[in-house]
Structures are given as C-alpha cells and as structure tokens.
Design a protein around this nucleic acid. Structure first.
Lengths: 260, 260
DNA sequence: GTCTATATGGAGATAGAC
DNA sequence: GTCTATCTCCATATAGAC
C-alpha cells in the first residue's frame, strides 16, 4: 500500500518540530502577561489572525490538501515565510485554525446543556437538542463570516477519512457524550446503540447544512438558501427530535416483544 | 483571491483534452461490438478497471487533492503513464470513477421508485424512502469492497465545496427530484421548502453513514460498527420518515394558523 | 518580525522506443 | 498497450540579511 501524500509530513523535520513547541507556547501566552504590548507585538498578533482567517476560509472550501501555504499567505497578503515563523508547519497552521475557535464554542455548549439540565424539571429530547445546537446556530446567525467558514471546515473534517477524524474526536467527543447523557435522561429506555446511531444521523444533517456547499440552491432552484440559518435551524430540531424519538421507540418495542 | 491548485488543470493542455474524447469513446464502446476480443484487448480492459478500482479506493479516503496519479498507479501495480493513456488527465480518471457506477445504481433507484408508485395503492413517506434508499443499501450489504469505496467517495464529494457539487448534480439530481415527486404525493400539503430542507437532512444522514470514517466506532467505544448496514439501514428509514413527517406537519400547522 | 533567496523533492504531463 | 526517460512547474521548508 502506497503512502499518500506523506511529503509535507516527512519534510517537516525534527528542527521544525522543536520550533513549533517553542513558538506556540510563546504565542498562546495570555496577552496580559506580556508587559510591553508594543506596536510590533500588536501587529504581529494581527498578522497571525489574518493568516488564520485566510487558512480557515481556504481549508473549508478545498480541504487540507487542496490548499498550499502560498495560497494562504497570498490570501492574507502576508509573506509565505511567516507561516512557518508562526506555525512551524502547514499542519501546525491547520491545527491552530481549529484550536482558535473550538474551545470557546465547546464551553458555550457545555454551559448551555448544564443550564438546561439544572433549570428544567423534566428533560425532553427537543430540549436537549436545543441546548446542544443553539450555541452553534446562534453563532451561525450572528457571527462574522469567519465563523461560518469555521463551521464549513468542521463539516468537511467530519466527512474526511484521513485528516478529519482525529480533529473531530479531540475537540468534540466530550460535548457529544454530554448530549448522549442528557438524551438518556429524556429517554430512559433507549439503548446505547440507538442513541449513537441517532446521533450520527443528526450529525450528518447538521454537517450538510453547515457545509454551505450551495447544493440546496441548485437542487431547489433557488427556493432555499444555505445561509438561511433560521430556515434550517428550526427544521433541524424538529426533524432530529422526531427521528430520534421514533428510532428509540421502534427499537424499544421490538426488544420488548422479543422477551415477553 | 488566489487560485487554488490550478496547476494540473492548467497543465492539462488542449492535446490532452482531445485525447480524452477519442479514447473514452473507444473504451466505452460495448465489448461485443469489437470483433476481435484479443488477449491484449482483454488485458487492457482489466488494466483500466484495476486503475479505476484503485482510484476509487484512494479518492474516497483522501479526496481529489490528497491522491497523486503516482499513488493510484502504484496501488494498481500499473505504470504511471498508463493513467494518461487511458484517461488523459487526473481529473479524467476521477470522472471515470463516478461514471462507471453512477448510471447503474441510478437506473436501479429510478426503477424501484417507479415500481413502488405503480404497485402501491397509497403512497407513504416510509414507502417512498425505502424505494429511494433500498437499492443503495442492498448494494452496501451485498456488493464487493469496490462498491463501498464508491459510496464513501460519493459521501465525501457531497461535502466538498469545490470538486463535489458538480459531480453530485450531474449524476444525482434526477433521482432526487423523482423522490421529491413521490413525497409530494405522500404529503400533498407539504411545502416545497420543507421537502427540500428535509431531503438535505436525509442526505446528510445517509452520507455520514456511508462515509465509513470510523467515527462511530470511536464515539461509541466499539458498540456500533460503520459497516453494519443492517443496523443503520433500518434506523435511517425510521429516523428520516419520522423527521420528514414532523417537519412538514409542523410547518403546515404554522401556515394554517397564520391565515385562519 | 519581516522579507529575499534558495534548497530539495514531487507533482502533472509528454515523447518516443518497444 | 506498455514502459523509460524526462520536461516544467510548484510544493514545503529553511537560512540569513535587515
């Protein structure tokens, strides 16, 4: 079996690895900790952010292998060598794109689910789904273009076999398990299999909607628009809640009738 | 805005384009029409098919840009130059992978939906979905590894913003519109918007299941397996039928209550 | 921090012998 | 039909001046 596009991984030598460690720590340091926030340092952070914005947009549309470091640098109007200065390798930049937004949104979703669990007397499927989905739908609705690029990137990572899975697990598994726990309380008789399969189907639906591929415009002849978050947000909750309840109910009936 | 990896598209000169036309006609000709099915011609077809098998597997896992022509040739134990002999360009090979299987499966799905419409006295959402999905689920269940690779490729094309949309529209729009027509008969009061959005969500669910990313194994700790077609096939029909009905019912109620 | 220059290797594609 | 050899361009990445 041939190795697939290993080039840039192999060529990112040990020296590059060392440099990443050093630099990423430096740049992740909270800004307040740096006593002199000089103009240069300020501009440096802006440059880094512009690179991440461009990377986010391009990786979302073309995937990890469909974008070159030069593409990103040109899109950000920044010299190519700076990518290596800030992120060490192409892959380092890719990871940084994820890291920048994932933590914030995950925190919001965890908070929403905890709040829902504490405040509501009885947990429903629809309520749990809303707590799980609302933070990202809200962001889709109100945030800048950057966030929608990030959504599309997550969507395409979710369907990718080689570079996606790792990312998805690292950043999203905890949120998903939190949702599953909530759903168990809403549907105490549901089997774990049903819940996991149902989550996958929900996840798929969310991803096509967030991917913004323009597919629904073509298919519907312009009746529906991919950026119409209000149109798909409500429908997604309704659809998933009904689907999930039906799957768990059907299986529950079936197992019950098998052991009378 | 920078051009993204235009290299191989630009470098595929006019001569290559001409060659594709000539060769593809030659190779698409029904075998019976060729009087002398010599050993060489036989081996040629085998070589071409081996290339397509390898391309299918690799493109499914790594996407269009994640695979090189050399990767495909090595995987198929075939000389790299033969790729250009048979398909003209890398993109030509990619397209050929789609063409090889898409027509057959689409015919089967059209037939299944027509048969369902003619044979059943009243059309139901679940019945329509089964007619639409069964041919591909059957193929997933019984076919060789090649077909499962193709499914995964379609799934990843569906989520890709640059190289996917074109393919999906070209090969699948007609089947989808046939399904929408059936659904309109099952739910005469449903709005077109609801039907299109619902289809998108169904499509997303189908794609994650077919993508075989190994995501559900990780998430469920091994309880569920991506290749368990029986497990997800039935659940998909149940889930989608319930979801679709709920979306259309909810919207119907809402519009009715707005104009009393 | 930013830019210039460059090393090194692999990409897509073609010509032409057999 | 198949393989060898090769062209040209661009990829990731680094060194070092400023």
């Amino acid at each position: 079996m041939p190795k697939i596009r290993p080039s840039f991984q192999l060529r990112a030598g040990k020296r590059a690895g060392k440099r990443i460690g050093k630099l990423s720590r430096q740049h992740q340091m909270p800004r307040a900790a740096r006593l002199e926030t000089s103009k240069k340092a300020q501009r440096s952070l802006e440059t880094r952010d512009r690179l991440l914005d461009s990377a986010e947009a391009l990786f979302a549309r073309h995937g990890l292998y469909g974008v070159t470091v030069r593409n990103v640098a040109q899109h950000a109007h920044v010299d190519t060598a700076l990518v290596y200065y800030y992120f060490g390798t192409k892959r380092g930049m890719f990871d940084a794109v994820f890291q920048r937004r994932a933590e914030g949104i995950n925190q919001a979703r965890m908070d929403a689910m905890r709040a829902y669990e504490e405040e509501s007397s009885s947990i429903t499927v629809e309520g749990a789904l809303r707590a799980f989905l609302d933070p990202i739908l809200d962001a889709d609705r109100h945030a800048d273009e950057g966030w929608r690029n990030f959504s599309a990137l997550v969507a395409s990572a979710n369907n990718s076999q080689d570079w996606g899975g790792e990312m998805m697990s690292r950043y999203f598994d905890s949120v998903i398990h939190r949702l599953i726990d909530l759903l168990k309380k809403a549907l105490p008789h549901a089997s774990e299999e049903d819940l996991y399969w149902s989550y996958m189907m929900l996840s798929g639906s969310l991803m096509v909607l967030q991917a913004s591929t323009g597919r629904i415009e073509l298919l519907s002849g312009g009746i529906c628009r991919s950026d119409d978050v209000d149109a798909f947000g409500e429908r997604l909750v309704t659809y998933a809640a009904a689907g999930l309840s039906a799957v768990c109910a059907a299986r529950h009936r079936e197992t019950n009738s098998k052991r009378p």
